[in-house]
């Protein structure tokens, strides 16, 4: 026998859970329950909880089963889509990272050639022939003029897009 239970507690518990207490309980067991603290606790607590369970179970206004079924389907679908999306996003990040690395590597490798090419660029296109002598004396205008031209071009594009939207 366990130090926490009475030897006859199993009998009492079976009667309680089968709904046979107290009508179908033998007289000797009923006498035992009256004198045994452990068994009387069991009867009191089980009786209270069983009645409480019956009464409490009448209370809820339950959501329809179909709504819960639909919500579970939705969650499973979202989980499936998320699981499929994860490797695709990973592959995209990997591809982007590899592209940046390759570009950076080429830039470092070819830096000397590109800087020389950019330095020779005006001479290659003979741009000096298109610029008046006064401009070529002032190197600052080389920057100002293309900047003004770019702003004018972009302003035209923005004005066109704005009118297009309206």
């Amino acid at each position: 026998m366990s130090p926490f239970t009475c030897a006859r507690e199993r009998e009492v518990s079976d009667l309680l859970h089968n709904g046979h207490w107290p009508q179908a309980c033998p007289a000797d067991l009923r006498d035992h329950v009256a004198s045994c603290r452990s068994c009387s606790d069991l009867v009191l607590v089980t009786g209270s909880f069983q009645v409480s369970r019956r009464l409490t179970a009448e209370l809820p206004r339950l959501e329809p089963a179909g709504a819960i079924w639909w919500r579970a389907q939705l969650r499973r679908r979202n989980a499936a889509i998320e699981k499929v999306s994860r490797p695709i996003i990973g592959a995209q990040i990997f591809a982007l990272a590899m592209t940046l690395i390759v570009i950076a590597a080429i830039a470092v490798w070819q830096f000397g050639n590109w800087s020389a090419w950019f330095a020779d660029f005006p001479g290659t296109l003979h741009l000096g022939a298109l610029i008046p002598p006064s401009f070529s004396e002032n190197g600052f205008l080389w920057i100002i003029m293309p900047a003004i031209a770019t702003i004018a071009l972009l302003s035209g594009i923005v004005a066109y897009l704005a009118s297009e939207k309206q």
């Binding site: 409490t56 179970a57 209370l59």
Partner: peptide, 11 residues
Amino acid sequence: SARSLWAYLAR
């Protein structure tokens, strides 16, 4: 099963 589960959670 729903009512007994609700009773358990509520109590």
